[in-house]
Design a protein around this nucleic acid. Structure first.
Lengths: 137, 137
DNA sequence: ATGCAAATGCAACAATGTTGCGTTTGTTAA
DNA sequence: TTAACAAACGCAACATTGTTGCATTTGCAT
């Protein structure tokens, strides 16, 4: 594992809890809710998990997004984001059936023209529908 | 006012609380948070406000969106949405400075091509940056 | 004016997220 | 290796947001 390296590079101490969280998130392109992770690591304190996710977000290791139901979710940053400032303009897909949330890194979002006076700094695109498993395709 | 008509058409009884809420929302293209409205109508019960907004959403009078900070907000539906099923695919703009949220009805979102197997049913586009007031333009 | 269903207010609860503080642990440097 | 310090952790308490049940009030149709 060079998760240890990755953590140290960001100035974060290597702890079992952090390694567990980063391992799970990095091994899929799904966005996990806090309660997903909480039940996955039942012996970890709830507050510790909040703090780990916050630290990871600040370090640019994960990004936080809202799903269609207003639940906050966390996913690994595949493309390296500059610390603190996430450039995760990629599309997120939320399945209405299984409620999983996918990062669709490859879908390109065209630039949108803003009305006079509005200065865009970034955008979040959330698509909902049926995922590959649930669409029966 | 024909807010009364609008409410009756949707099968909702006309009450002072409902008239107040619909008046505020309809008189701007801003999306209001629950706490915005709560402090605006301080004598209204918190639960009543939740229920009014829920009823309005079900009736297609308002739509609910998340802002950039994960706060749920409500805005009037300008284009008529079919009851219960919102087609509010328009863009929302969140100002990083004043935290206001605008409905940009006129910005068109191009159709995005999904990866194999993913069936899109709708999308939310949230742009953040500086609004006309805060950009100094 | 009357009656009924719908809307409201209140209390209690659940879920999610935050803060403070004492204890434990990772890391650096002797 | 060990000692020391800062960072991370666990726990308790609290804040905010949203939900549910029930008794009371109110809008509206007759």
């Amino acid at each position: 594992m060079d998760y240890m390296l990755q953590l140290r590079e960001k100035g974060l101490k290597v702890t079992p809890s952090r390694l567990n969280v980063i391992k799970v998130l990095d091994s899929s392109h799904l966005a996990y809710s806090h309660s997903d992770l909480e039940s996955l690591f039942s012996k970890m304190d709830r507050v510790t998990l909040y703090r780990i996710l916050k630290d990871f977000e600040d370090a640019g290791i994960v990004h936080k997004i809202m799903d269609i139901d207003g639940v906050t979710r966390f996913a690994i940053c595949k493309s390296t984001c500059p610390d603190g400032h996430h450039t995760d303009d990629h599309v997120h897909f939320n399945c209405k059936a299984c409620h999983k949330m996918f990062c669709l890194e490859k879908v390109q979002v065209p630039h949108l023209k803003m009305p006079q006076g509005f200065k865009a700094m970034g955008l979040h695109t959330l698509i909902y529908g049926l995922c590959e498993n649930c669409s029966g395709a």
